[in-house]
C-alpha cells in the first residue's frame, strides 16, 4: 500500500460494476462517500455509518463488505460490485431483484441495496438455504418497513429459481 498523507487527496482506482473508474479521496474519506459523492453511484445507501444496519453493503473482490467501515483508499485497486451492477441490462431485473418485486420485499427501498448485495453473494455460495438459514443470514441487516417476511420469501423464491437456472445450464 502506498504511503498516504492526511491532508492530501489521493487517486483511487477501482473496477466498479465492470468498468474502470477513478476519483480523488483524502485518506479519511469513507468508501460510502467516495462511491456516492465522488463517483456518483448513489445506489449504495448509508443508514448508520457504524456497521450495524447493513444498508451500505457492497461486494469487494467477491466478498460482502460494509462500505461505511471501509476507507476509499483501502479500496484502491479493488473490484467492486454495487446494486447498480445487479441487473443484466437496463429495464430488466435479476432473478433476485425480480423476486423482491413480486413479493413486495421492499417498501421505502432504503435498506434494499445492501440486502440485495448480501443475498446475491450468499445465494451464490449457498444455493439451497432453509428459511432458518436465510433468517439468520439476514440478521446482519436492518429493515424498518417490511417486517422481513416478504424479504425471506423473496430470497427463498430466488434461490429456487436460481437452482433451476443452474440445473438447466
Amino acid at each position: 500500500m502506498p504511503r498516504l498523507s492526511a491532508g492530501r487527496r489521493h487517486t483511487v482506482r477501482v473496477t466498479l460494476n465492470g468498468r474502470a473508474v477513478e476519483g480523488e479521496a483524502e485518506p479519511r474519506m469513507l468508501l460510502t462517500d467516495f462511491l456516492r459523492h465522488v463517483l456518483g453511484s448513489t445506489g449504495t445507501h448509508v443508514g448508520c455509518e457504524h456497521g450495524v444496519c447493513g444498508a451500505c453493503t457492497i461486494d469487494i473482490d467477491g466478498a460482502p463488505a460494509r462500505a461505511c467501515l471501509t476507507l476509499a483508499v483501502q479500496a484502491d485497486g479493488a473490484t467492486i460490485r454495487t446494486v447498480e451492477g445487479l441487473a443484466p441490462e437496463p429495464g430488466r431485473l435479476s432473478v433476485l431483484q425480480d423476486a423482491f418485486r413480486r413479493h413486495h420485499a421492499l417498501q421505502c427501498g432504503f435498506c434494499t441495496a445492501g440486502i440485495l448485495m448480501s443475498l446475491d453473494i450468499y445465494l451464490r455460495d449457498t444455493p439451497s438455504p432453509t428459511e432458518q438459514d436465510v433468517r439468520e443470514f439476514l440478521g446482519g441487516h436492518l429493515c424498518r418497513c417490511t417486517g422481513y417476511v416478504p424479504i425471506v420469501a423473496a430470497a427463498l423464491d430466488a434461490a429456487q429459481k436460481l437452482r433451476g437456472v443452474a440445473r438447466d445450464a
Binding site: S41, T42, V83, L86, L93, Q97, G109, T112
Partner: peptide
Amino acid sequence: EDAALLTGRGRYIDD
C-alpha cells in the same frame, strides 16, 4: 416504485 429502487436508481434527498 420498485424497478428504480431495486436497481439503485432511487432519488432520495442525498442522491
